[in-house]
């Protein structure tokens, strides 16, 4: 953490406060954060979670008679513009061919995306941090063994091992799938954390803690890890965005979540043939796949800026081309 960007106003504040301040003043990141929470909050409150019912009056699995060939009833063009007014209607996103409410189905997909993000990124981050921390702190043969293991996993492209793991666990439900995928996606974080630990463990404050008699665990978790949090959090945000895409891709290939459970990737791939005839079946889940991933990327970018403000503005000098002689000496 080189603090090249500390301005006068920031002097005297704790590192965490500084970072937090930098993050909340980043408008794009904050707006993205609020929107992301809103999307997930909306999806959870709409159809409820587990036994808790939501405010939407249909669930994502019960077939119903189809009305108007399953067309969406959502209307967003106000009457004074020639539309039919702003209203949700009975089935805002339409219905599937057996009449399941597509809004509820899409919201279930969003919920599952959320589960995947939290569990996959959570498992990968914790595992990767622990492995990286231990390897970087102890060095020597511990490091050698752990890094060899990391190498082994890094050789296999995530989507390939994900496909295999997904085929094994896809039928067991979203949580199983997410956790299993998390177990094969931790290598990037492990490498980053290790590199951070390797440099941090040589710093004076670690030496001081050791002299004061702190245990290894205490040094790792209380002293070094907080200083490496920037790397961890930024990497975790990237994994979270990638998690959505991974689950979507696997479901598309048929290795992920299975019907009648809903996943956005599954909805998109099931309804690809409806692209030109019932486009809403394609576009709603497609939108809710891209939007959270995009928002997370913006949040991640904001976090990176907050933790590491080195990429500050620089100005290009406008100079005239210099005479030939000068240049040839360069």
């Amino acid at each position: 953490m080189t603090n090249t960007a500390i301005s006068d106003a920031e002097v005297g504040q704790s590192q965490a406060r500084l970072i937090f301040r930098r993050f909340v003043t980043n408008k794009t990141a904050m707006v993205s954060f609020v929107l992301l929470i809103a999307i997930f909050g909306f999806s959870i409150s709409a159809i409820g979670l587990g036994p808790i019912p939501g405010w939407w009056h249909y669930n994502f699995y019960a077939p119903m008679p189809t009305a108007d060939e399953g067309r969406p009833t959502l209307s967003i063009i106000p009457e004074w513009l020639g539309g039919s007014g702003i209203s949700l209607g009975d089935h805002p996103f339409g219905q599937t061919r057996i009449g399941v409410d597509y809004f509820a189905a899409t919201m279930r997909g969003v919920q599952n995306s959320f589960v995947v993000i939290v569990l996959l990124a959570g498992v990968a981050t914790v595992l990767g941090t622990v492995v990286g921390a231990i390897a970087g702190y102890y060095r020597g043969w511990v490091d050698a063994i752990l890094m060899r293991i990391t190498d082994v996993f890094i050789v296999i492209p995530t989507i390939v091992v994900g496909a295999v793991v997904g085929r094994m666990t896809g039928g067991l439900g979203v949580s199983f799938l997410a956790i299993a995928l998390g177990l094969v996606a931790w290598m990037g974080i492990a490498r980053l954390v290790r590199a951070e630990f390797l440099s941090l463990r040589e710093r004076e404050f670690v030496e001081a803690a050791r002299v004061a008699g702190a245990s290894d665990a205490r040094i790792i978790f209380k002293h070094i890890l907080p200083n490496a949090m920037g790397v961890v959090i930024v990497a975790a945000s990237l994994i979270a965005a990638a998690a959505i895409l991974l689950e979507t891709a696997l479901s598309y290939l048929g290795y992920g979540i299975h019907a009648p459970e809903r996943s956005l990737g599954l909805l998109v791939s099931e309804n690809q043939s409806a692209f030109s005839t019932r486009p809403w079946l394609f576009w709603y889940p497609a939108f809710f796949t891209v939007a959270p991933a995009l928002l997370i990327n913006f949040i991640g970018d904001g976090l990176r800026d907050a933790f590491d403000p080195r990429q500050k503005r620089f100005s290009i000098r406008r100079t005239k081309e210099l005479p030939e002689t000068t240049e040839q000496r360069s």
Binding site: A249, V268, A286, V290, R313
Partner: peptide
């Protein structure tokens, strides 16, 4: 070189969008 210009911001958005676009969606 054009940091924080309209081009830079536009490209940032485009690259994040591409990051977030499932590849099968792009292909379709």
């Amino acid at each position: 070189l054009r940091q924080y210009s309209a081009f830079d911001l536009g490209m940032t958005f485009v690259s994040f969008l591409l990051y977030s676009l499932p590849s099968f969606l792009a292909a379709v």
